[in-house]
Structure formats: structure tokens, C-alpha cells
Design a protein around this nucleic acid. Structure first.
Lengths: 338, 338
DNA sequence: CTGAAAGCGCTTACAG
DNA sequence: CTGAAAGCGCTTACAG
């Protein structure tokens, strides 16, 4: 390998200045066609590697966008991230991923790292308990933030998410129309806007149909496949057992269905089950899962667009953009209500 | 906010040199206790943000480790990544994630970005078709590489993976011991070492039991839940239909079981099904899935350790480290063979 | 169309 | 224990 090749190595070799080499490599029209080609050829053959840290130190643009969510493994985020990735790739932005697992200190460490690396922007689904001041800190240090899936009041930035109240009202109403009166809601927590909004939608649908909300049919907590599975045991002991269940998410519903089957209750036959998010698996599950498509693709794409607009200099403004969800009726909810 | 605070801002304010401030912030014993505290206090109150690009340009250490796998959403990688994350966090290394989706050009773009950012190391599960020269390029530019899950012959670096031949032999033999003679293998491809090794294990187990390998019972391709689901339709049309199925992965098995149920064949009752990987979901699935625990946690941890050793200056050497897998028998494989 | 020079914000010998 | 100065590898006015 020998010595590391840098701009000045190429410049010396060709008898040019580093300024010319720098311009040529970035396709500046200021450099004559022939010169440019000679330079590019030399860069190629010498194995030149562009030093982004040096460039970034000079320009204070890094080409890095940070993305921080609760857990990338969650297929719900997966689809959002795929669209974000698509949008950013097109702008030749590198994107750096991070899980915060709803741990505020992990999230802070990440934001700090992004500040230190001079990241150009940040897309995040804020951890539970994120104060507006955390967002302000980033913004004040020239790190524009766009929020997805969850909102932080007073943060002063845009956020993109599905209309959870509307969506949950939709599924719950569907179950009511199928003749159910005893409907449980399993999963989610009051600590996130998502959890609160989805419960709100459930309550509204009940209220609109004149059905009383019953505390004992609200099982809070589960947000993963595994905890959904565990919730089945709790559900089985419920007084005056409901004939239908709405879940906080598809993952919870899928886990719950495994649990119910094991307990001898057949989803889609003995009991109606609905999920939320319409992840890929919902359509092929057994039984196929009735759920709400949450517009994840649109959330990701629009959040990335909004961030890119900020990078181009647009000003921030606090606004929650709600993407309208859509009901997907499948077999898991179609039983004769009892 | 006003002007950006940098080392020299603090130095001027306190009437010290940037050298002293720099040393103090990194807890150098060269700086007097009192001075150090004054400096740290000033840094805190002025909202100083350490500029890692500048430091990195000077030291040529970036504190960044790149991690590149086929698809982070795959729970198989998920567990590996969690251990990698744990190990790296402890060393205060930032880790940058990337999916290559088995697209060589995507992988190359990522490696290039890591070189440009001066990353300290790279952990990757190489995309299909990765030539040894791609690894050499990184290594020659001071970017140490450690491989996980797959190997690249001639790359000259260490790789960590489960012993796929052994593991697949284990499950297949289990089915034979359960009395099965007609066993299909679904999923995986010849293009990856994983795919080849798992098929090899399956073939060996058959051979050892004196059972002939039958081409028509080998359904190649599926590597996701969805394609596993689709494979059920193909399976149903198989001549002289097998009484048992080994799948390339749990995801394939789980999708296949959905598909079989839909086609009216009950996994664990009418037909035996086994997976591979022992992801979280396997134990709670319905029926619970017989599978092979692949030591993902150990793979991730040891790969991270090996990379960290390289960062401390240890030399590379080509060696494949096989982690021994373990059979997990659950209900999906326990039927009366016919 | 090309070059000389300054500067981005750190760290690291070296000197005192 | 602290400071003055050089340098990491780029880019950007500015001059010619």
C-alpha cells in the first residue's frame, strides 16, 4: 500500500494544485475537461480515498443523518425505515441507525454522538419521557429534528404519524358492527402518545355505540409478540370473558393468538381478534389478521422529505401530520358473535 | 445560542491554552485537579460540544464501527446485533448499521462510506458474491474486518458462525429417529455458505441413515417468512408427499406452517416441521417449533471481541470459528410418522 | 482555467 | 503543571 494517498499526492504527481484536484473530483465546470479526466484517472489508479472528516470539518456538512427508534427489529419501524432509507439514499446521505429501547440515556448518548459528528439531521421516534428541551438542544446546535410515530409537545418540530384515534375507532367499530358488545383492549401504555391515542379511539367507538368502558377489560402493557403471548393467560381469567379483542399492535395480536390457541381458544372461530399496523405477516397469519394499515411507508417517506427540506434551509415549525389509516378486514375478526 | 463554543472559546474565557483545555476534558493527570474542574464546569455551562471530526482528523481514530448485514429486520441478525451492540457500547464505540439486501453495490457503497469516515472497524455478514478483494481493499486501508454468519474464502480475516453442517445433521437425524423416512428440505440457496452448509448437513444425516436424497423434495429459494408461506403451495403438490420438513430457518418454518394450515395440513399433527435458529418466536409459536439454537449471542459477542482485539493492534488471520449448535425439540416435530 | 494561502477545531510533541 | 506552534486533509474565497 505504501503511504496514504491524499489530494496533495495527486496534485504533486500531476503538477497541479490541491484546489484544482479538489474541484475536479467534485465535477466542477471550473476545471477543464481534459484536466478533470486526468485527475479522476489518477485518483482511481492510485486508490485515493476521500477523507470526509477533513471535508466536513471545513464545510460543516457531514452527509450523515441519524435515525433513532425504539427498536429497529420491530417490523412496524422496519417499513418506515425502508422508506426513509430510500429517500436518503437518493440524496447520498449516509444514515446511522440506533435503538434507544425507550431508554432516555441511550437516546441522549446517540443525539450527543450525532452532534459530535456534525450530523446534518435527525429522524427519531422519541423515547418515553423525552422532554422538549432535548429536542431544543439538538435544534440549537444546528441539528434539525423530525419526529416519527410519536410526538413531543412543545418540541417545535414536525412529526409524522398515523391517525391512531381514528384508526382504533375504525377497528373497534368494525367489531361492534360484527355484533360484539364485550370487547377487550390489550397492550400499549399511557406513557406514549401512541398508547394514549389508540386507547382514546377504542373508548370513542364504544361510547358512540353506547357501550360502557370496562376497566377490567383493558389489559395495559404488552407491546411485543412475547408479551402479547403472555397476555393470553391473563385474558383467560377475565370476568365475563369478552367475545372480541383489539390489540395495540399486530405483534401483540400475533403473540396473543399463539397464546389463545395454546389455551384452547381458536382465534377467528371462538373469539375475534384484531391487530394494528398491518405488517407483512398479518395477511399470511393463521387466521389472517384483521388490522389497520397505518401508512408506515408514507410516514417514512414524508418524514425524510421534511428533513431534507430542513437541510435545504427551510425553517422548523411545530406541526403534527396525521396519515389516515385504513381498515383491513380478514378472517380473524369474522366469527358469529355470542 | 450565539457563536459556537469550541476549545479555544473556553481557553480564552479562562485564560488558558487550548492544549490544557483539551487535556483536562479528557481527564489527563497532567492537568491540576482545580484547573480541570474549572475547565469542565465551564464546558458544561457554556454548552460546549466536542467536535469529533476535528479530533478524528488529527488522531485518525473515529470511534465508529460499521456493521453491515443482509437485513437487520431478520430476527436472526437481531440477536447477533444485540450482543455486538453490547460489546461495542462498553468500549464507547459508535456503531453504524446498514442493510445490504445481498446487493453487492449497496455493500460497496457502505464500505466506501466507512473508509471515508475513517471508521475503526467493520463487522459484516458479506453479501452473496462478495469477492475476497473487497475485504482486502478495506484491510489495506486500515479498516479491519470481521465476518459473521458467512465466510469469504481467501479474505484473510476471522469469521464467526454456527456450525451449520452439524446443526442441520442434528435436526434431520431427530426426524429420522422419530421414524420419518420422507423428509423435505425447504429454503436456502447454494449462493451462500450458510445455504450450502445446511443442505450438506441434511444430506449427511440422510446418507448416514441410508436414506436416498431426492431432488424433488428439495425446495430451494425461500429465506423469509413470506416465501416460506408461499412454499407451502409448492409442497402440497409434491409427488409422494413427505411426512416431515426441515426448513432453512425458523422464519421459513413459521411462514410455511401458516401456509400448511391454510392448505388444511396441521403442523405437528399431520406433518412434522422443524426450523433453524431458535429465534424468540419459536418457543411460543403454535405449535411450538422444533429448531436448532444457533448460538447467535455468542457469534455476536465473539465477533465484536475479535474486532476490538484488532483495534488494539492484533494482527488479522484467516480462521473460521464454528459455534456449536443445539437441538431444541418442541411439539412441531412430534407426530406419529406415517 | 489554475494556484497560493488561510482556516475548519482538535491533539501532540516539545519547551519551559 | 501550562503554553506556543505545527499539522491532520480538505475547501473556499481571492488573485491572476
Amino acid at each position: 500500500m505504501g503511504q496514504k494517498v491524499k489530494l496533495s499526492t495527486i496534485a504533486e504527481k500531476l503538477g497541479l494544485s490541491t484546489a484544482t484536484v479538489s474541484l475536479a473530483l467534485r465535477d466542477s465546470p471550473l476545471v477543464a475537461e481534459v484536466t478533470r479526466e486526468r485527475i479522476k484517472e489518477e485518483a482511481r489508479s492510485s486508490g485515493y480515498i476521500y477523507n470526509r472528516r477533513a471535508a466536513s470539518l471545513r464545510t460543516s456538512k457531514s452527509g450523515i443523518v441519524g435515525v433513532c427508534v425504539h427498536d429497529i427489529m420491530n417490523p412496524f419501524y422496519g417499513e418506515i425505515l425502508k422508506s426513509v432509507e430510500n429517500e436518503l439514499d437518493r440524496q447520498r446521505q449516509t444514515f446511522v441507525l440506533c435503538n434507544h429501547y425507550d431508554d432516555l440515556s441511550k437516546q441522549r448518548a446517540f443525539v450527543d454522538t450525532m452532534l459530535q459528528l456534525g450530523a446534518d439531521g435527525l429522524i427519531m421516534s422519541p423515547a418515553i419521557g423525552t422532554p422538549a428541551s432535548d429536542i431544543h438542544l439538538a435544534e440549537e446546535n444546528d441539528l434539525p429534528v423530525t419526529l416519527i410515530a410519536r410526538t413531543v409537545a412543545g418540541a417545535g418540530v414536525r412529526s409524522f404519524q398515523g391517525d391512531d384515534v381514528y384508526g382504533m375507532r375504525l377497528v373497534t367499530r368494525h367489531l361492534i358492527e360484527e355484533g360484539h358488545q364485550r370487547i377487550a383492549l390489550i397492550g400499549g401504555t399511557d406513557l406514549t402518545s401512541t398508547g394514549r391515542d389508540r386507547e382514546e379511539g377504542y373508548r370513542r367507538a364504544l361510547a358512540e355505540a353506547g357501550i360502557a368502558y370496562r376497566e377490567e377489560w383493558r389489559i395495559k402493557g404488552p407491546r411485543s409478540r412475547h408479551s402479547g403471548f403472555d397476555a393470553a393467560a391473563t385474558f383467560m381469567t377475565l370476568p365475563d370473558r369478552p367475545s372480541a379483542i383489539v390489540c395495540f399492535s399486530d405483534l401483540v395480536a400475533l403473540g396473543l393468538m399463539y397464546g389463545l390457541s395454546r389455551a384452547g381458544l381458536r382465534p377467528g372461530v371462538d373469539i375475534a381478534v384484531c391487530g394494528y399496523d398491518d405488517i407483512d405477516e398479518a395477511a399470511i397469519a393463521m387466521p389472517p389478521l384483521t388490522t389497520v394499515s397505518n401508512g408506515q411507508g408514507e410516514v417514512g417517506q414524508r418524514a425524510a422529505d421534511a428533513l431534507l427540506a430542513r437541510l435545504r434551509g427551510e425553517r422548523a415549525e411545530e406541526r403534527v401530520e396525521l396519515i389516515r389509516p385504513e381498515l383491513k378486514v380478514r378472517r380473524s375478526s369474522l366469527i358469529h358473535a355470542n
